[in-house]
């Protein structure tokens, strides 16, 4: 299913497909027409995607078919070995943890996993972790420090799960603990926001030395729908809320919340998952390569200072 604003491109794609089929069937040469249509498709896609509203960007960030964390892990790192469980309550499939190789270096990986279909979405709770998931992350931070394994986190969640058990098990407490523990890491930490960076549940895995964001990913204190429900008293105002929240990659770069934007293939990561995955691999490798030379104390200090500086306010003389 194309996104609403993808319809014209979708139609153009269909025409190109038909024309190819016809050319093959009838043994006629339509290559110049096809090339012309492909050029038109590319420029239409480019135009459309450079002029998306913030609400449309939110839709891209959540697009079905957009690569999920595990899709990235297949190629960004090698030999990803999942490690399960929080050693207290269970294992949370919404937050995947493990070890892997990034180039020659061993790394700890944390990833919020949404489903690629309804069945997996239910299994993964739509990428919304319970406290158990964050407790597993805490365990991984300890592992990373003990064996000097850099941490790579892939962030993609609507938010930490709001439920009865989640509250009883201290959702707020574990998120705070993750923020604190991750800020104390003595190894390099790189976070990539690959889809939705939903509030505290996302930040819990993103207290990194470098925070990267995919071009069409979002990172926000609250979902546009919830923001609209509260501030406009009307969830249908989500597009207005998305505008007001300034939650796109460019907005966040301007606010100093993220350090760099990883460009997506034209038309978004869901149009060319392999291209997006390769872009992330290169970006992550470059960051780790740079950070691995930084001494442990310096890494922790730099990370603390990165977050200590966050915010905008006026200061009295």
């Amino acid at each position: 299913m194309p996104l609403p604003f993808e319809k014209p491109m979708d139609e153009l794609e269909a025409r190109i497909r038909d024309m190819r089929a016809y050319a093959e069937d009838q043994h006629v040469d339509l290559s110049s027409e096809i090339v012309a249509l492909e050029r038109r498709l590319e420029s239409l896609t480019r135009d459309t995607f450079t002029n998306l509203s913030r609400w449309q960007r939110v839709q891209v960030a959540r697009a079905p078919g957009r690569p999920t964390a595990l899709d990235y892990l297949g190629s960004v790192v090698e030999g990803f070995t999942e490690l399960h469980g929080d050693r207290a309550l269970g294992d949370d499939p919404a937050l995947v943890a493990g070890v892997a190789k990034l180039g020659e270096i061993g790394v700890v990986v944390l990833a919020q996993q949404k489903g690629r279909d309804t069945k997996e979405n239910i299994h993964r709770n739509f990428g919304m972790a319970h406290p158990s998931g964050y407790r597993k992350a805490l365990r991984m931070f300890d592992l990373a420090d003990k064996f000097k394994l850099p941490v790579l986190s892939l962030v993609d969640t609507p938010g930490a799960y709001p439920g009865i058990a989640a509250e009883e098990q201290g959702q707020a407490w574990v998120i705070a603990a993750c923020i604190q523990r991750m800020s104390r890491l003595r190894v390099p930490a790189v976070s990539v926001i690959i889809g939705e960076g939903g509030s505290g549940g996302a930040l819990a895995l993103a207290v990194a030395n470098r925070v990267l964001i995919l071009e069409h990913a979002i990172y926000s204190v609250i979902s546009p729908e919830s923001c609209a429900a509260i501030r406009w008293r009307d969830a249908a105002e989500a597009p207005s809320a998305a505008e007001a929240l300034k939650l796109t990659a460019e907005d966040l770069l301007e606010q100093g919340v993220v350090d760099a934007i990883v460009e997506e293939p034209v038309g978004g990561a869901h149009k060319d998952p392999a291209g997006a995955i390769e872009a992330v691999r290169q970006a992550v490798e470059a960051e780790i390569e740079e950070l691995r030379r930084v001494p442990s104390d310096e890494l922790a200090r730099e990370r603390r200072e990165r977050f200590r500086r966050m915010g905008r306010f006026l200061e009295a003389n």
Binding site: A176, I179, Q180, S183, R184, S199, G200, L203, V207, Y219, S220, V221, I222, C227, I230, R231, A244, L245, K246, L247, D251, L252, Q255, V257, R303, R304, F307, R308, R309, M310, G311, R312
Partner: peptide, 22 residues
Amino acid sequence: GARMQEGALSLMQMAKTTVALE
């Protein structure tokens, strides 16, 4: 909670206050 009128910058205050406690 976080002040949504300040967007992601307010989210970042969660990390800022936490690191300051160090």
